[in-house]
Design a binder for these strands. Structure first.
Lengths: 197, 197
DNA sequence: ACCTGAACACCGTTCAAGT
DNA sequence: ACCTGAACACCGTTCAAGT
């Protein structure tokens, strides 16, 4: 009678957890609702109760990705006041995540942008708000445009380094060094002097 | 008797050309061998004569992508001697391509890196060699390590900006301005003074 | 509210057969 | 050498039915 001992309401999270693992080793292409159902020990129609279609699952995955990355960045911020170290820690947290969960990053920042569900959009906004807080000046009179430009370039560079590593153009150690060098270069630029404290 | 007037040997390129279009409007997910065969007016088994499996088609697409991007960069280099303008033109050429063919870029720089076929690898090397030539110093005694680092950071930043635009985080005009600003910032850094002429 | 299981259309892949 | 068409296993999606 304990034929299906699990999922007295936890099937949704069980599917998501399993999906993260599959994603990590087989990419988006390896993700199938039927396969996830099989792994969870339920019928192939069961996931339908929690995700209307495959895209809904992918959206939910992107949302958890944004939340996990946000908490990683928050962790990197804990107890750091020096600007240089703050940037370095955030940068490494971001790039590490992007490399370890490259396929998930593709779901979070899809190349063919589909209209984003509101819950995913909210999770994305939380991440950007956290990043803003991490990089923003604490002085109110700082040039707003310069700061936003600086933030964008910083995010772009980190995302780019992660892509280089994830696609095997450079190895991880090289990527780590690039993160350091990029951070130093950007903090040393004239843009930075008007953008951050 | 002209039931199938095309493809007296051109089916391969016909499939590839069609695939680029499908890729552009439906992403990798919308690419199906059977659908391509249908559009070309051949049976579903016909593509097999030119591509052993779906991955072989994706590899071929990546290869053509590298070749097209290489020629775009070469075009951007034509008749430009000033360093600043050279960088700006190459950067815009790169980012424009990455935005217009974002899905193709994902095939060229896959998140879950599969072992790359030798022909794809060769096409990729051609692109990197061209980029090296575009950005490299003409003086032989320049610091080699600094130059390579500078090249990597430049490529990473451009790829990152393209990702931001392709995933709709910023619009295209903002991306264009970021390209300009990033180029100025990088050329103004101390890294650049030891890396480029 | 959540899950089952049959049904349908679609896909990648294989393969014998045609030209 | 290139293409056809049947076959097989797999998938997403829908839906009536169970609990």
């Amino acid at each position: 009678m304990t034929e299906r001992p699990f999922h007295h309401g936890s099937l949704r999270t069980a599917l998501l957890d399993e999906a993260v693992l599959v994603l990590r080793e087989s990419g988006v292409h390896g993700l199938s609702l039927r396969d996830l159902a099989r792994r969870a020990g339920v019928s192939h129609g069961a996931p339908r109760s929690h995700f209307v279609d495959r895209q809904a699952l992918l959206d939910a995955l992107a949302e958890t990705g944004f939340r996990r990355l946000t908490s990683r960045v928050e962790l990197a911020l804990a107890g750091q006041d020096d600007v240089r170290h703050r940037f370095l820690r955030v940068a490494h947290a971001y790039v590490d995540f992007a490399i370890d969960d490259a396929a998930l990053m593709d779901l979070m920042f899809p190349a063919s942008p589909s209209p984003r569900s509101s819950t995913v959009a909210a999770a994305a906004r939380d991440l950007f708000a956290t990043l803003d807080g991490a990089m923003g000046s604490r002085r109110a009179d700082t040039d707003e445009v310069a700061r936003e430009t600086f933030e964008m370039l910083f995010a772009a560079t980190m995302q780019g380094i992660a892509t280089l590593v994830a696609s095997n153009r450079i190895d991880r150690a090289r990527g780590d060094r690039l993160v350091d060098e990029a951070t130093e270069m950007m903090l040393g630029s004239t843009l930075a002097t008007t953008a951050v404290t």
